[in-house]
Design a protein around this nucleic acid. Structure first.
Length: 458
DNA sequence: GGATGCTATAACAG
DNA sequence: CTGTTATAGCATCC
């Protein structure tokens, strides 16, 4: 997948399949380390700890476009930027945990991959594609959920929409010689559920020797084979997803989607649209496959700046990813105590951010020091979608990601978020998570964050 | 086709 | 801030 922006000397920036955006970082610019702004619980001095969010309310310099409107509710004496920063500080995955989990996951994934390549006729051409939050560096708190797609490259297929919103498609093989997928065909149409059933069986075989890996029962409509790993106390769930990689023009339902022209540029958009797309299988129902652009999402989020240098070392930092992490965190927190919200997922958050980036395309509208305002605005965006009950898929505008969520749930979440937002610090409740490793220290003198923690949502 | 090298990103220590 | 450690991912070499 993607992540083209990474690795290897880029020979040139305009190879036909390179979505590179001509962004080749010159060698001189490399070696950027992460922004070490999150460093566990902040120092307890009164010094500015939250390195990056000092004066959220301060002037933003020559902003190319008007700042997001500030809500008048900035709270009393506490700097909301600081509260947000303290919350953010609690979200990163700890190094040791990351190391432990990835070791376990990589081991299992490699087993499955090897098995498919060597023991299975139908899936021997499969390609591994890592997707989802963890591999986008957007997973928060615990590395306990991983997504890996196993993708079968297709040549010469006819993809037809199935249904009205452009989310599902049937796949027909055109004039084909005998091939490894013949067993899944009926009238040359690839049957998703048959193929997925066999895939699932192969996954089971691949991990049959591992006592600490369990296969979850299949869930109708869910495209994944979900594995539960429990190795010496570390519990991880791994979604293994079967997909078809289609190298042809994107379906017409996507024509008006992914409006990143003003944000990342029309050239970049064109490059992305020249990449293959994926169709993921699901159980039961029809023989339809659901379309997925997770590889493009990953690239967009990696190369998220209006300017090429966004977030590079010694260049301006933006807060797009931070805003997304905070929104995901907020939704997770609300879900944890509210059963009515079970239908909401992190993809709603991600989609909201993508739309927000197209509406406010310049880096100047996402300056790190303005985290507080940017996040408030993002919450307002989300509330708007909830109140309308309509959140268009970023790639397929006709598809409403809230169509299967009841109006009641949408209203409920909108109200909860509004309440948070109008509270002065929407995140007050959030920053209460106990620090990752036992909080030996008394609450910091900086503010109510710590005392909020046990109060809200409990 | 596996080992290795290089780079991007991030956590984290000083 | 700088430097170190770690995973991920691409490219290249043998």
């Amino acid at each position: 997948m993607a992540a083209r922006g990474r690795g290897g000397p880029r020979k040139n920036a305009d190879g036909p399949k390179s979505p590179s955006r001509g962004r080749a970082k010159s060698p001189a610019v490399r070696g950027r380390r992460g922004h070490a702004r999150a460093r566990g619980p902040s120092p307890r001095t009164s010094e500015p700890d939250a390195g990056r969010a000092p004066g959220a309310a301060r002037s933003r310099g020559p902003a190319p476009s008007p700042p997001p409107p500030t809500t008048g509710t900035r709270s009393r004496d506490e700097d909301p930027g600081r509260i947000l920063q303290r919350t953010l500080d609690q979200l990163p995955i700890r190094k040791q945990q990351r190391s432990d989990s990835s070791k376990i996951i990589n081991d299992v994934v490699q087993k499955i991959q090897k098995h498919m390549e060597t023991k299975s006729a139908s899936f021997k051409d499969i390609q591994k594609l890592t997707t989802g939050s963890y591999y986008e560096n957007l997973k928060i708190r615990d590395p306990d959920e991983f997504d890996v797609m196993f993708s079968v490259p297709m040549t010469r297929v006819d993809v037809q929409p199935f249904g009205l919103d452009g989310a599902f498609y049937t796949v027909k093989m055109k004039r084909h010689p005998k091939g490894p997928l013949d067993a899944f065909l009926s009238d040359d149409i690839i049957c998703a559920s048959t193929m997925l059933k066999e895939f699932r069986d192969e996954v089971k075989k691949a991990i049959s020797a591992a006592a600490d890996v369990k296969v979850e029962p299949k869930k109708t409509g869910c495209p994944a084979v979900t594995l539960q790993l429990d190795r010496s106390g570390t519990k991880i769930s791994l979604d293994v997803v079967l997909s078809l990689e289609v190298r042809s023009c994107w379906p017409s339902f996507t024509t008006d989607g992914m409006q990143i022209g003003n944000w990342l540029g029309t050239k970049v958009r064109k490059e992305y649209r020249q990449q293959p797309f994926h169709l993921v299988a699901k159980y039961e129902g029809s023989d339809a496959w659901r379309i997925s652009f997770s590889h493009v999402e990953k690239q967009i989020l990696t190369n998220h700046g209006n300017k090429k240098t966004c977030c590079e070392k010694n260049k301006k930092d933006c807060c797009r990813k931070q805003c997304l992490k905070l929104l995901k965190h907020l939704i997770e927190q609300l879900k944890a105590t509210n059963p009515d919200l079970s239908k909401f997922c992190s993809y709603h958050a991600k989609t909201t951010l993508l739309h927000a980036c197209t509406r406010r395309p310049t880096d100047g509208e996402w300056v790190y020091a303005d985290l507080s305002q940017c996040f408030q605005q993002l919450l307002k965006d989300f509330e708007h979608y909830l109140k309308e009950g309509v959140l268009p898929n970023f790639f397929i505008p006709k598809q409403n990601l809230l169509s299967s969520v009841s109006k009641k749930s949408c209203q409920a979440l909108a109200r909860l978020i509004e309440e948070q937002r109008n509270n002065g610090f929407p995140l007050g409740s959030l920053s209460l998570l106990p620090p990752p490793s036992a909080p030996l220290l008394p609450p910091l003198p900086l503010g109510p964050a710590a005392s909020f923690s046990s109060r809200c949502f409990s």
